[in-house]
């Protein structure tokens, strides 16, 4: 093996290994901070920052109970695919492949909820599908726009290492992405498919029938997911320089704070609002910005 080859393997292996090992820690920590900030916003003291880890550890010790034998399989697959999806992202592979793998990971979760044949879980599952339909156009528009401004590549590795920071050309796409991020994080007003607080028509939605280890797996899957979703935000800033990397990380944290803030100042809306608004945002902020960079590059238009 030549030094060059070794280096190129390292370039992929190190971030992937770091992701697999540290993403749950970071994700859990973010979840803890979320709960702390939320509590403070509501005038409570709040749990310790490490509370999410305590919760998961406790879940792991619970008695193994399930409503059927296939549900655990689907949740396990969902966790595994969430990790795979993140690996594709941090290995710097195709952005589209990453988006499609994420869909598969989410579908496993939906399948788990459906398989229980429980009314509450199934309502949650269908709403989750609706949310996917709501946010996906904007995600794809973001990917295509990034492709256009980053010298015609979907390769995440190339995207983050050169060119101008995408956000300069894609402010509309960036705002649109932040909007659907609220749906993706399942924060109010879009906590339609599952909720951290019991709501009477939904109970715990998608997760109603999960318990013990299964629920713990799901929690960890969310931690993994949140990390690469913030990674997507980072794509709008990275251009290979240290300065922009710092800016990118700061914006990611700000974006996360913004989501927590939005969560706390909004009541849950109807699903119609989620679908309508997400598509309108995609068609205005997203599509308009995409058309501008498209015609700027290829010519044409009116």
């Amino acid at each position: 093996m030549t030094v060059m080859e070794f280096e190129s393997i390292l370039k992929i292996a190190v971030p992937v290994a770091a992701y697999i090992l540290f993403a749950p820690l970071l994700g859990g920590l973010l979840a803890g901070i979320d709960r702390k900030i939320t509590a403070r916003m509501q005038g409570r003291f709040g749990p310790p920052v490490l509370q999410p880890f305590y919760d998961v550890l406790k879940l792991l010790e619970k008695e193994a109970i399930t409503v059927n034998s296939s549900q655990d399989f689907f949740v396990g697959c969902s966790l595994l695919f969430m990790i795979v999806t993140g690996c594709l992202f941090f290995a710097g592979l195709s952005l589209l492949l990453f988006i499609f793998a994420l869909t598969t990971a989410s579908m496993f979760l939906v399948a788990a909820a459906y398989s229980s044949n429980s009314p509450y879980a199934q309502i949650g599952a269908e709403r989750e599908l609706l949310q996917m339909m709501a946010y996906e156009p904007m995600v794809l528009i973001a990917a295509i726009s990034l492709y256009i401004v980053k010298d015609m590549t979907f390769n995440i590795g190339d995207m983050v290492s050169s060119g101008v920071p995408a956000v300069i050309l894609l402010p509309g796409v960036f705002l649109g992405f932040l909007y659907i991020l609220t749906i993706k994080f399942r924060k109010s007003p879009f906590d339609l498919s599952m909720s951290h607080h019991a709501h009477q028509e939904l109970v715990k939605g998608l997760t109603t029938e999960f318990s013990g280890k299964t629920l713990a797996m799901l929690e960890v899957a969310h931690w993994y997911e949140n990390v690469f979703l913030l990674g997507f935000v980072f794509l709008f800033f990275a251009n290979g320089t240290l300065a922009m990397a710092v800016v990118g990380v700061v914006v990611c944290l700000l974006a996360y704070f913004l989501e927590v803030f939005i969560d706390n100042v909004n009541a849950r809306m109807k699903w119609q609002f989620a679908l309508n608004s997400a598509w309108i945002v995609a068609l205005t902020f997203g599509a308009a910005n995409m058309l501008i960079v498209y015609y700027r590059l290829f010519g044409g238009g009116v």
Binding site: N68, S70, F74, T103, M107, V110, A111, A113, Y114, S115, S116, N117, Q122, A125, E126, L129, L130, M132, M133, E136, P137, L140
Partner: peptide
Amino acid sequence: SSVTVFYWGKWLGKMLAI
């Protein structure tokens, strides 16, 4: 293609319900 995910997803779910 976003819409496609929805209609297949709900059919798939129905099949998997135990």
